[in-house]
Design a protein around this nucleic acid. Structure first.
Lengths: 125, 125
DNA sequence: CAATCTATACTAAAAAATTAGTACTAATGA
DNA sequence: TCATTAGTACTAATTTTTTAGTATAGATTG
């Protein structure tokens, strides 16, 4: 079975976020955490994690009888790919309109804006 | 059939982009355009456009026998919602890390950066 | 050791997304 | 007017995503 995009689906992302945060984890670890937020079956989490192994987002190894899953790629890299995919699809690949939207769109505090400004100045230097 | 997210799927977005660009369009209009880029059946486009009517992204009216479909909401608004959804899912709702990524991530020309800086300055004033 | 619990494999099914075929109707052009 | 074509309705298949049940093998404990 071939996947169309190499980008994480929402549920896959949800699990990856847990594993990035916790580091190497068992299905149970992830299950317990997700369970706090919503109803989900243990086996569902396992299926998802195994799909993520298929997709090379996780790798697993047996430690003391139980499998431990860990990310194959750092979060930054995967999220970066997701951002590029999103910018590609929604803004035809140009980040500028997205930037403009974000800056306009009052989702940022003054401190945020100042930090961005700083960064831009550094870049422009 | 209930949809989980109210956000456009990739294929839906592809069609919406055409209709936002062209304004009120027939299935054939959209079909011809998409066809230039990839193989797709006329009826596929129609199905998608009717799904988009169900989802209230398009509305249609009969003009001279043929249906013409037009967006119910401006592109900016829908894309804004997509950005918010994305930021919510990927960055837990905070736009700042996305901004930082984009600014760092060499997808921007110097001119882009200057424009953003301008905007930020205005905002901060 | 038998009962129980845990992790995993195997299986599968519902829901959503994507794609498209077939048949019917209305317009049109010869 | 009749054959052809364009538009539409109706229907449905395939793929992907999401969710989860059942069975089994190994560990655990009373």
């Amino acid at each position: 079975m071939k996947t169309k995009t190499n980008v994480l689906t929402p549920q896959e992302l949800e699990i990856m976020k847990v594993v990035w945060e916790r580091g190497a984890s068992t299905v149970r670890d992830v299950y317990e955490l997700l369970r706090k937020k919503r109803k989900v079956a243990y086996t569902t989490v396992m299926t998802m994690m195994n799909i993520l192994v298929d997709k090379k987002h996780l790798q697993r190894e047996k430690v003391d009888g139980a499998y431990r899953y860990e990310p194959t790629k750092p979060k930054k890299q995967v999220v970066g790919a997701m951002v590029r995919d999103f910018v590609g699809r929604v803004f035809d690949g140009s980040a500028r309109p997205l930037l403009l939207q974000l800056v306009e769109d009052r989702h940022l505090t003054e401190a945020d804006l100042q930090e961005i400004e700083q960064l831009i100045e550094e870049k422009l230097k």
